[in-house]
Structures are given as C-alpha cells and as structure tokens.
Design a protein around this nucleic acid. Structure first.
Lengths: 105, 105
DNA sequence: TATACTTGGTTACATAAAGTAAGTATATTA
DNA sequence: TAATATACTTACTTTATGTAACCAAGTATA
C-alpha cells in the first residue's frame, strides 16, 4: 500500500500555521500594526513568553515585520508583510465555515 | 483602548483546527475513508496515542465519523462528515498560499 | 496444542512545549 | 528616591506529546 507524500511547501505551511497561537496572532495583526502588549492582551491565555517566541518565528518566516521607533519609551510595532497579508482569505474561509457549521452551546 | 472580542464560533473553529495534527488528519481523510494504521503511517511523527485522542475529538465535533465493520479482524474506518468535507476549500487555500509564498531551502 | 500474527487501540514513562510569576534594562515622571 | 512604562527574559511548574511495551479477540501457522 503506497503512501502519498505531502507537498513540502504545503507541509511547511501547515507546520507554521497549526502551531499554537500562530494563526490567531496573524489574525489579530490583520486589523493593523500593533504593539506587543496589545497583541498579548487581545488573545486570552497567550503568555508574553510564547508571544515573544511566536513573533520571532513569524518574523523569521517573513510573515510579519518588526518596526522599531526610537522614541522614549521605545515603540515597537508588528505588522504583516505581503506574505502575511496573503493569508487573509484563509481566515475568511474559517469564519465562513465556523458560521455555517459551529454551534455554540 | 477597547479590545475587540473574537466571534465565539470563529474562536472555536481556530481552537479545533490549530490543535496539533488535527488539520493534517482532516487533510489526510480528504483522500477518502481510511483505517487507523493508514492515517498513523501517513503522517510522520504522529503517534498512535495522539491519533487516538484526535480522532475522538474530531468525532465529538462531528467532523469525522467512525464506522465499525464487524469482520474478522474487525475493520474500523474513519471518514469525514459533511461538516468535515466543508473544510476542503480551506486546504486548497493553504496549498495555494504555500505554493505562492513558501520557498523550500 | 502452542505460538505467532493482525487490528485498534491503551498504558506507563520520558521529553518537549506552554503557562505563571517574577525580574531586567532603559527611560520618564512624581 | 520611588514608582511607572515597555518589551521582553528567566526560573519554575504544569500540560502536551512522543516512545515503547502491552492487551484482547480472532485467525493462521507449526
């Protein structure tokens, strides 16, 4: 029985997107550039530690960009790159699917 | 600064889909009904223990159905329900995004 | 008859990931 | 001087996941 291999690009995308919190962080950034604490407080139960890790991973993947404004105190904003923005339709799909199929008790 | 609440349905969908292995299991089932060991061997590093958990969760969510055929030895097949099948376009989106934006080193 | 094999799991244990709370550096304000 | 703020780190605890062995029921093989 032969096993079908996954496309490496698809596999990589799934690896990124299905990591805990990653997708929600991207979704949150769809509403515009924002700072660390804003993201942290917008996502219940997301700890600063994990947010810090995820932001680095997403930046390394080229999905978000970290902009430093040398004010006092320093202001740092995270925003989606073109690559990250290209994920928007995905979330629309999830929103539609959840609207059609999820029922909340 | 007011914080926008996530739609509970959307939140729930994300909770389900972004759990480790869940999406890949659903994706694997898009190729048709299949048995436990088939799914297990098709997804590298997925342990039988976690697969067992995920299948129960997906069944509880109504995304997959578990069919028992009392042959000898017993045959058990998992397949997507209508709700599960409705996720197919999502994976097409991910495939397209990964094709457009992911580069493998 | 005894042994081994198959399926669809479960169990016990070890490791990895995530959550919690406190701490750090730099700078401003009271 | 003490307190406040931002953007994180660090140490520690809890949870999730991976590994490997095991189990029951029913063949098949020696």
């Amino acid at each position: 029985m032969d096993q079908q291999e996954l496309c490496p690009k698809f596999e990589k995308a799934m690896e990124i997107l299905s990591k805990r919190w990653t997708a929600l962080i991207v979704y949150q950034l769809l509403s515009g550039p924002q700072r660390f604490v804003r993201i942290e407080t917008s996502l219940t139960n997301l700890s600063g530690k994990v947010l810090s890790e995820r932001l680095k991973e997403l930046e390394a993947e080229g999905i978000i960009r970290r902009d430093v404004y040398p004010e006092t105190p320093v202001r740092i904003e995270y925003q989606l790159t073109e690559k990250g923005l290209a994920l928007a339709p995905l979330f629309e799909h999830i929103a539609k699917w959840s609207h059609d199929w999820i029922r909340i008790s």
